[in-house]
């Protein structure tokens, strides 16, 4: 039957049009544009900051001048203490993101596989979402002691919840025809999961990942604020309590830069993971 390919009927219908040029060609220019815009905004922001300090729109105790923060930034970036703090916070975020994300993914899959359990636990999971988990730090300290694991555990939970909910919503919303297709092809459970269900739910899972990284960061820094004896969050609180506004601002800027970098990385990953889908 393969050798009998005849010339297909050529129709002038809109259903056999010529290939449309890919949207991809437009992307570098929009990427460049957004990079230029980002840089421009950054310059404007610095200018505003400098101007505000120079014209005394605010007191140096509120926001120290850029001219003081910049040398402090350079100095701090060269210090071992900073890299110790940054390394510790980075490690906490990474573990919370990977561990919480993986755990959330598994929970989401489990809820989908066992809808009854999912329906029982969903309201608690959703309301847990709204609880400021930092409140549980005394419990954590009692359980694991005053060390970075109390930070990691709470940040993991914060990262895991949106991941679990998104995975679950994504899987429950699968078009039934995909599962019917999988069944008609005789897919085994592993193929159904990895070849059909998870890729189909990928837009939700990736959105879950983006939330997870944000929550891991918030969780880690906020927990360090209250419990830790090292880390970027701890350092900010320490400097603020010792009225060292300049150095505190340096650390605040570093945390800001970190969250921007993580968001950027995730958006790059998102684009790669969701290639070809509508609107991308």
């Amino acid at each position: 039957m393969e050798s009998t390919v005849a010339a297909p009927v050529k129709t002038e219908s809109p259903h056999t049009p010529t290939p449309v040029p890919g949207r991809r060609r437009k992307r570098p220019s929009t990427g460049l544009l957004s990079a230029v815009c980002t840089f421009g905004l950054l310059v404007l922001g610095c200018l505003f900051w400098h101007l505000g300090s120079a014209l005394a729109w605010w007191s140096p105790a509120t926001i120290p001048p850029l001219t003081e923060v910049t040398p402090a930034l350079v100095e701090i970036l060269g210090s071992g203490e900073f890299w110790g703090d940054a390394g510790r916070t980075g490690f906490e975020i990474a573990i919370a993101f990977v561990g919480g994300g993986a755990f959330g993914l598994l929970v989401g899959i489990g809820f989908w596989k066992a809808p009854t359990i999912g329906r029982v636990f969903e309201p608690y999971l959703v309301s847990f979402y709204a609880v400021p988990l930092v409140l549980f730090y005394p419990v954590m300290i009692v359980i694991v002691g005053i060390n970075q694991w109390s930070v990691i555990i709470l940040a993991s939970i914060m990262a895991g919840i949106p991941m679990a909910l998104n995975t679950w919503v994504g899987l429950s919303g699968l078009p039934p025809v995909y599962l019917k297709l999988a069944r008609s092809l005789g897919c085994n459970p592993r193929q159904t999961m990895f070849e059909v269900a998870l890729p189909a739910a990928a837009p939700f899972i990736v959105a879950g990942l983006r939330l997870a990284v944000v929550y891991a960061l918030i969780g880690a820094v906020a927990m360090e604020f209250v419990t830790a004896s090292a880390g970027l969050g701890f350092r900010i609180r320490y400097l603020y309590e010792s009225f060292d506004t300049v150095e505190m601002f340096v650390y605040v800027l570093v945390v800001l830069a970190m969250s921007l970098a993580l968001t950027f990385l995730l958006s790059v990953a998102e684009r790669a993971l969701l290639r070809g889908r509508a609107g991308r």
Binding site: P175, V177, K180, P199, A200, L274, R277, A278
Partner: peptide, 9 residues
């Protein structure tokens, strides 16, 4: 199938 069963990825 009646529904669109192409896989968007």
């Amino acid at each position: 199938f009646q529904e669109d069963s192409t896989l968007p990825w």
